[in-house]
Simulated assay, not measured.
Amino acid sequence: MSAGNSTPYGVKSLLECMCRATLLAQPDDIPEFMSTYVDKMAHFRDEDSRDIKEVAYRYQEQWGKNICL
């Protein structure tokens, strides 16, 4: 079994979005930033969006627009 097959569905997408947000925001407290980011992403998710990849990318897109303002 390869390492790529042992990663749970959506984890790679979630980590990519979290890392990108962290690099863009350059927070002083990275653990606190990530905690807040994931908490807000969980609240962003609506009833119809249960696919973690879709939620991660949609939230990242919205978050990116807000940080650039």
Rank of each mutant, 00 (worst) to 15 (best):
Y59S: 03
L14K: 05
C17T: 04
M34D: 05
A42T: 14
T7S: 08
A25M: 13
E32C: 06
G10N: 14
K65E: 14
L14Q: 05
E47D: 13
D28Q: 13
K65Q: 09
A25N: 09
D51L: 03
G64Q: 10
E32P: 03
A3Y: 09
L24G: 00
R20M: 04
N66T: 09
M18C: 13
L69A: 09
C19Y: 10
I52K: 00
Q60A: 15
N5K: 12
E61S: 13
V38Y: 05
D28L: 07
V55I: 15
S49E: 15
C68A: 14
C68V: 12
M34L: 15
C68I: 10
D39A: 12
P31H: 00
S13Q: 05
D51M: 04
E61M: 07
H43R: 14
P31M: 01
S49W: 09
A42P: 04
W63K: 05
D46G: 10
R45A: 15
V11S: 02
T36A: 12
D39Y: 11
S49T: 12
F33M: 08
H43C: 05
S13M: 08
K40V: 02
V11H: 04
S2C: 07
F33K: 03
I30T: 07
T22K: 02
M1K: 12
L14R: 06
L14D: 03
M41V: 06
D29C: 09
T36D: 15
V55E: 02
Y37D: 09
E54V: 10
C17N: 04
C68W: 00
L14C: 12
S2G: 12
Y9D: 14
D46N: 14
Y59C: 00
G10M: 05
R45H: 03
N5T: 06
A25V: 13
P27H: 00
Y57G: 01
E54G: 01
A42D: 06
D48G: 08
E16Y: 03
V11P: 06
E47N: 10
E54Q: 08
Y59K: 01
T36K: 11
E47V: 11
Q60K: 10
Q60V: 01
R45L: 00
E54P: 00
Q62R: 13
G64S: 15
S13Y: 02
E16P: 02
E61H: 13
A25R: 15
R45Y: 00
A25E: 15
D29V: 02
K12I: 12
F44P: 07
Y59H: 07
S2V: 02
T22M: 10
A42H: 07
Y59R: 01
P8K: 00
I67K: 13
P27N: 02
T22I: 03
S6P: 01
D29W: 01
K12Q: 08
E47Q: 11
M34N: 11
E47C: 03
Y9V: 07
Q62N: 07
Q60F: 12
R50C: 10
F33I: 10
L14W: 03
V55W: 04
R45E: 06
A21V: 09
S49I: 00
N5M: 09
S35Q: 14
R45F: 00
M1T: 09
E16M: 06
A42I: 05
